[in-house]
Design a protein around this nucleic acid. Structure first.
Lengths: 156, 156
DNA sequence: GCTCCGGCTGGACATCCTGTCCAGTGAAAT
DNA sequence: ATTTCACTGGACAGGATGTCCAGCCGGAGC
């Protein structure tokens, strides 16, 4: 779905100050409240804004260690492996990929030592042939979307 | 920060239905409104809930292709590379890592063909020695946090 | 065993926001 | 020129919010 400059400014504003409501947003953007409401409805209907769920920080929950694991799967075991990984709370994300491995997953753990336990649990499944793990040290660019939103907004 | 069962249920509820307010949440959880408000304040103060920003779907914005790039950096060029990557809108996330590469970044692109342009832009920087890219095909486990929240809540 | 304290309850209050209408205006497309 | 569409500015009732408060309870510490 294409978005214009106003959509972009709205998303950016909501990202910076999620607590403000439709009315306050309309004041900041200099448009009528109905306009903001219509834009929001359109963005939600178009799937651009999926929701406003709470952004939970795993580190604050006691899981400060993040790691990425590349998994190699035995042929035909894909579905089983997915189900297995979906059952591990420390697996925050899973992708199937091209290239060397077959899957890439994001893990968190309570400590480097605890990461071993998590990895054991992840790879302790017959369908997984091999796993290669790298620990994330710093996070210079945290998951973000605003720059992309602005680029998409300008291309309108 | 430790969370208890009520915190866990509250986060899960907010994740499932972000539009409900404090009052409705208190009704669903069977506690007083003040309790929910106090819990929410505590979770935000403790950093567990970082905010309620809009969850934007890159695919809906016209960037349906996701890829992960492992970068090898020339010694001492880390800071420059970070700044460079932070300036590329299609770079959604960047980590420094242990292991084979020095950095891992998440990219999006408008198409497989467009991914080439993004990669060229990413690696078109002197500090980057080598890059290895894998395309994400499926996403069996989208970025999630609830299972981890529930585990953290049970350990209380 | 007793007291203190923190967390929860249930209620109050004024203020503000929300969802949902509507008619009028302007600009762009046909 | 006419239609169409988005935006404006306003209205309305209903409800939520932020912020108090007194009272109650159970656990921790003395």
């Amino acid at each position: 779905m294409a978005i214009d400059g106003l959509d972009g400014r709205l998303i950016t504003l909501l990202d910076a100050e999620p607590r403000i409501g439709v009315l306050e947003a309309s004041r900041r953007l200099g448009v009528a409240r109905g306009t903001v409401q219509a834009r929001l409805d359109r963005l939600r209907a178009g799937g651009v804004i999926r929701g406003f769920g709470p952004q939970v920080d795993p580190a604050a929950l006691g899981y400060p260690v993040t790691a990425f694991a590349t998994l190699e799967i035995r042929q035909g075991q894909g579905a089983d492996v997915r189900a297995h990984l979906a059952g591990v709370p420390e697996v925050l994300e899973l992708h199937t990929t091209t290239g060397e491995g077959d899957m890439l997953c994001r893990l968190v753990a309570r400590s480097n030592a605890d990461l071993q336990r998590v990895i054991d649990r992840v790879v302790g499944f017959e369908g997984i042939v091999r796993a290669s793990t790298t620990i994330a040290l710093e996070n210079p660019v945290p998951l973000r979307i605003i720059p992309l939103v602005e680029q998409a907004a300008q291309e309108s």
